[in-house]
Design a protein around this nucleic acid. Structure first.
Lengths: 123, 123
DNA sequence: CAGAATCCCACGTGATACTG
DNA sequence: CAGTATCACGTGGGATTCTG
C-alpha cells in the first residue's frame, strides 16, 4: 500500500469555504485516509498536518463510537495502533465522493457569487 | 403550492446526531424548504420553529452571499420578502437527498454502535 | 411583517507541554 | 509511538427586546 500523500488536503482548499461537512472538522479527511486500508496514528498526521494530537485522538474516538472505524492496539514495543474503516464507515465514502464532485463542479460558481456580493456591498 | 409542513423537521431527528452538514446548522433545512418555490420569511419560520429570527436572517444572508438563494423585496405594505433558490442552490438538492438517503439507511446502525460503545465503557 | 440591536454563553477547536 | 493533561479562545448560535 502506498504511503499517504502529504499534500492530500491542500491548504488552498480551506474547509472554512467548503459548505459541506461530514461529522466534525476532520472526520471526512480521516475516512478518506483510511480508504486504502488500515493506518497508524502517526501516519494520519502526515496528510492532516494541521490537526493536533489531542484533536485527532478526539475525532478518532468519536468515529469509533459511531461504528465508523475500529481501533486495534498491537501489543508490541514500541506500541502500534491501527485504525480501519468498518463496513459502515465505508458507506460514507460514496457520500464523500459526492461532496467532492459537487465541489469540483460548483465551488468556482460559489466563490464568484461571493466575490460579487462582497463587492456590491459596502467594504 | 402547498404550505410547508410544520413538522417537516421532526425534533426526533436532532441535528446533533446527524453526521452530515451542508453549510451551517440551518442551511440544508432552508434549502429543502425552498425546493417547491419561493417562500417568505415567516413562512420559513413555521417548519424551522427552533430558529430565532436573528439566526434565520444570518443564515439567509450567508446563502445569498454564496449565490444559493435570491432575496426579493416587494414594495408593499405590509412588507413582503421572498427567498428563492438559484440554479446553483438547486444543485444542492441532490446532495441533500443523498444525505437523507444515507441517514435513512445507516442511522440505525450508527446509533446502535453508539449504544454499544457507551455501554461497554464505564458509565 | 421582516427584521435589527444587544448581550451572552457553550462548545468545538487549538497551543503547549508532558508521559507510559 | 501514541497518546494525556491543561489552558485558552473565537464564534456559531441563542434569548430578549425593539422598530421601520
Amino acid at each position: 500500500m502506498d504511503p499517504l500523500d502529504p499534500d492530500m488536503f491542500h491548504p488552498g482548499c480551506p474547509s472554512s469555504v467548503m459548505p459541506i461537512r461530514i461529522g466534525d472538522k476532520w472526520s471526512a479527511m480521516i475516512i478518506a485516509c483510511l480508504e486504502q486500508g488500515p493506518r497508524r496514528f502517526s501516519e494520519l498526521r502526515v496528510p492532516i498536518h494541521r490537526v493536533t494530537p489531542k484533536v485527532l485522538t478526539q475525532t478518532l474516538r468519536a468515529l469509533e463510537r459511531d461504528g465508523m472505524i475500529t481501533r486495534t492496539v498491537h501489543a508490541e514495543v514500541p506500541p502500534r495502533v491501527e485504525y480501519e474503516l468498518t463496513p459502515l464507515g465505508r458507506t460514507l465514502l460514496d457520500l464523500i465522493e459526492a461532496c467532492r464532485h459537487w465541489s469540483r463542479k460548483h465551488m468556482p460558481t460559489l466563490l464568484a457569487a461571493r466575490d460579487v456580493y462582497d463587492h456590491t456591498t459596502q467594504p
